[in-house]
C-alpha cells in the first residue's frame, strides 16, 4: 500500500507546513513517497526527505515543470501512478488545479479537501460551505485525494528518506507561464499562522485596514479579510478567508468588522478561539465567537493594540 504525495513547492522552495500536514494525513494510508516537481526542486526534495514519516523522495527537475502548469505536471503524476494506490496532496490552489486532471486521466473520482481519514478507502469531507460533513467510501482502485491541511497536525522533522532523481514526462505543450504577481508579505503565511486578524466591510477603507495590520503585527499574526473587504479593494484577494478563499484554523482568530456570512464562516470556524469585534450585536459572527465585543472597531482596535502584550 504505497502513497504518492505531491509536495507543495513555490519557486524551488518547499512549503513545509502544507506538505508536512499532508504527510500526517497520508502516513495513515501507507508508505509515503513524496514527489518534488519543479524547474528547481532538488532543495525542496532534500527538505521533504527530513519530514518524519516520509520513506522516499522523488525529485523531478525540468523546465517544463516550472510553475507547475497543470498539463505537464498531471502527465508526470500519471506516469508514476502505476506503483501507488493513493495519490494525495495538500489542498492548495496548485493541487486543486492538477489533481482532478490526474484523477480523470486515471478514470477515477477525486476526493477534494478531505478533513479526515477513516481508512484506506473512506474519507470525511466538508460540503455545503462546511455546514455538513460527509463520509465517503471510494470504490475506485486508486484514490486521488487532496487534504484540508487546517485539520491535520504538522508532521515532525528528523527523518532521512533516500532521494532519487527522476525525469519529467512528455510535455503536452498546451500552456505556457507568462508572469506571476506575488503579493509581498513579511507576515506569517495565512494558512499556517497561529494567530489571524481579519477585517471586513466594517473597516471602511484601504487606509483604515492599516488598523487591522497594526493589531496583527502586535500579535505576530497573519492578516485575513472577508470577501466584502477584498471586493471593496481594502485588501488583496489572496487574503480572503472563506469557502472560496483560504481555510484557516489558527489558535486565535480575531474578526473585526465582519458580519459572519455562511461563506466566511466556512473558512475559519475551526479556529480554537474566535474573537469578534462588531458594533452590530445581532451580527451572526457572535454565534460562533468565544469572546464577543460589541463596540466600534475604531475605538476598540487601537485600545486593544495598546493593551495587549
Amino acid at each position: 500500500m504505497a502513497v504518492l504525495l505531491i509536495a507543495e513547492i513555490t519557486d524551488g522552495e518547499l512549503a513545509m507546513d502544507a506538505t508536512a500536514k499532508a504527510v500526517t494525513a497520508a502516513k495513515q494510508l501507507g508508505d509515503v513517497t513524496v514527489l518534488a516537481a519543479g524547474a528547481t526542486a532538488a532543495a525542496a526534495g532534500e527538505a521533504a526527505s527530513k519530514i518524519d514519516g516520509v520513506s522516499k523522495v522523488l525529485v523531478a527537475e525540468d523546465v517544463t515543470l516550472g510553475h507547475r502548469l497543470a498539463e505537464p505536471t498531471a502527465a508526470l503524476i500519471v506516469s508514476l501512478a502505476g506503483d501507488y494506490e493513493h495519490i494525495v496532496a495538500p489542498a492548495t490552489t496548485d493541487a486543486k488545479n492538477v489533481l482532478p486532471r490526474v484523477a480523470a486521466l486515471l478514470d477515477v473520482m477525486v476526493i477534494s479537501d478531505a478533513s479526515g481519514v477513516v481508512d484506506g478507502n473512506t474519507f470525511e469531507r466538508p460540503i455545503y460551505a462546511g455546514n455538513a460533513v460527509q463520509t465517503v467510501k471510494s470504490t475506485d482502485a486508486k484514490k486521488v485525494v487532496t487534504f484540508r491541511t487546517s485539520t491535520f497536525d504538522t508532521a515532525g522533522e528528523g527523518g532521512s528518506a533516500p532521494v532519487e532523481s527522476i525525469s519529467a514526462a512528455d510535455n503536452p505543450g498546451l500552456s505556457e507561464w507568462v508572469e506571476d504577481k506575488v503579493a509581498e508579505s513579511d507576515r506569517p503565511e495565512l494558512t499556517s499562522a497561529g494567530v489571524v486578524v481579519s477585517g471586513g466591510r466594517g473597516v471602511g477603507s484601504e487606509d483604515d485596514f492599516r488598523l487591522i495590520e497594526k493589531l496583527a503585527d502586535k500579535l505576530g499574526a497573519a492578516v485575513g479579510a472577508s470577501r466584502a473587504a477584498v471586493d471593496s479593494g481594502y485588501a488583496p484577494n489572496d487574503w480572503q478567508i472563506g469557502q472560496t478563499g483560504k481555510v484557516v484554523a489558527p489558535d486565535l482568530y480575531i474578526a473585526v468588522g465582519i458580519s459572519g456570512a455562511i461563506q466566511h464562516l466556512a473558512g475559519m470556524k475551526d479556529s480554537k478561539i474566535i474573537v469578534a469585534i462588531n458594533k452590530d450585536e445581532e451580527a451572526p459572527i457572535f454565534q460562533v465567537a468565544d469572546f464577543g465585543l460589541v463596540a466600534d472597531l475604531f475605538d476598540a482596535v487601537p485600545e486593544l493594540v495598546e493593551k495587549i502584550g
Binding site: G130, V133, T135, T139, I274, L293
Partner: peptide, 25 residues
Amino acid sequence: RLEILKTEEPAERAAGIKVGSVDEL
C-alpha cells in the same frame, strides 16, 4: 464512484460570551 456512508452536522462550538470592554477581552 464515491458511496456516501453518512452526512452529519459539523461539531457544534461551545457557546461563547460577550465581554463588556477591551480590558475584559
